[in-house]
Amino acid sequence: MTYNFAFLDEDTKRMLRRSLLKAVAIPGYQVPFGSREMPLPYGWGTGGIQVTAALLGPDDVLKVIDQGADDTTNAVNIRRFFARVAGVATTERTVDATLIQTRHRIPETSLREDQILVFQVPEPEPLRTLEPREAETRTLHALADYGLMHVKLYEDIAQYGHIATSYDYPVRVDGRFLTSPSPIPKFDNPKLHQSPALMLFGAGREKRLYAIPPYTEVESLAFDDHPFEIQQWEHQCELCGSGESYLDEVIVDDRGTRMFVCSDTDFCGQRRAEAQA
């Protein structure tokens, strides 16, 4: 048997497209959608895959990253899936891509207006760890009652002197909805604010879609006396020398020697290619 272009049937794509348009119209709000069972496991990017399948056309150039890298196994597998069911061109170059599906990172290279970033989201509800009941969190969003989150962050400060959230750091979108940026390191949060590119988020298992439109106010929660800060390293990338990128720490021998390298493999590779040229 043969599958439809991009695997999903047209009814499903229309349902996804209607939901995505509402998501864009209500920035940061989680739209419930009829998530389908995909041929990849829940928790492995089924939300992002469904969003990508609803967007994808024959003219697109798709890039898929996981942890910032194109060659991690799950990124390879998702890219392979779309090459197989849609026959689209794929790339590892951020600048060449029209669509980028990502897990846990936003590329270091600035995105453009003609690009769309699709995030894989495990838990779309930023309040879930504080309030497990969906009926309750939905009410809190309806009332824009985010006291729970402020109390949590404040308690962090009281106990540790710092906000003890280093990834999936909650944001307020367009001054209204408290939103999960997905488990990106807070290092990437500033890239959400006034982004030229549209950002779409898909949570397949939890059956929610949401969006951050381009040029939208995205504020990482903070307090006046504890402003939002991103991670910093005392190191530079040992491969390309970058001092501005997010670094992975790699243990290189059994004495525990560390090496720091860019998590964004395309960014790092391009810098090294330029240095050699």
Binding site: P41, G43, A164, Y167, S263
Partner: peptide
Amino acid sequence: ASGFVQHLKLPHYVDFQAELSL
């Protein structure tokens, strides 16, 4: 359930790095 429990074997080193630094 199976998908989400087993997704923990996917790489999480970006977030782990963030937690290490914190």
